[in-house]
Amino acid sequence: MWRTASVTALAALAAFVVGSWLTLDFNVWTAEGARRLHVARAEVPAPSVALRGPEIDASLPALVKHDGQVTIIDFVYTRCTTVCLALGSTFQQMQSTLAALPRPESTAAPRVQLLSISFDPGHDTPAVLAGYGKSLNADPARWRFAAPINAEGLANLLGSFDVVVIPDGMGGFEHNAALLVVDSRGRLVRIFDYAEMEAALAYAQYLSTQSVPTSQKAAG
């Protein structure tokens, strides 16, 4: 009987080890939860990907690297009628919340920027993105739109940020939509659910105030 007991105990121990590895110490059960926890534990540098959009022709890190500026990114495709609409309205609300905030200096650019990146560059040309932004009443000083210029860039970007896009069987896509907070050094530092808009905004604002002294230190 001790042999059976020892094999049973060994199996339980092995399952515990595998289970704690699979669930990151029993914190998450889904790949999306693991993705968010991984990013929160160690920031992910944005890959160098050329983007194009209305009044944008730059690589991704350069686009978000501004002193004291934090960017909240979401991934969209303009033909979307489901999650992206929810994300669109979340971004609209975030835009109006940010606009209502008192600015430290009237001349300074907004500290928290919004950027919607399309993963459907074949359809979402700069012109299409401009029209999309207009329909959402996007303020170009605060909320910009862009898409990778080629397929490798797109794959690189989606891979780095762990964005999984799958066909939804009705001609559209399903994707793990979320609010990605990227700091002024071009690193993805936190991922929020799009239901956690307030938390994402508060975190981004906090980061933007934090990153001023460090950049000044770096400059000085």
């Binding site: 094999v7 199996a11 339980a12 699979l22 669930t23 889904t30 693991a34």
Partner: peptide, 14 residues
């Protein structure tokens, strides 16, 4: 016991 543990792990969506 082994089978039950494998099945438990197999149901974790990740």
């Amino acid at each position: 016991t082994f089978a039950a543990l494998v099945l438990a792990l197999a149901m974790i969506p990740r």
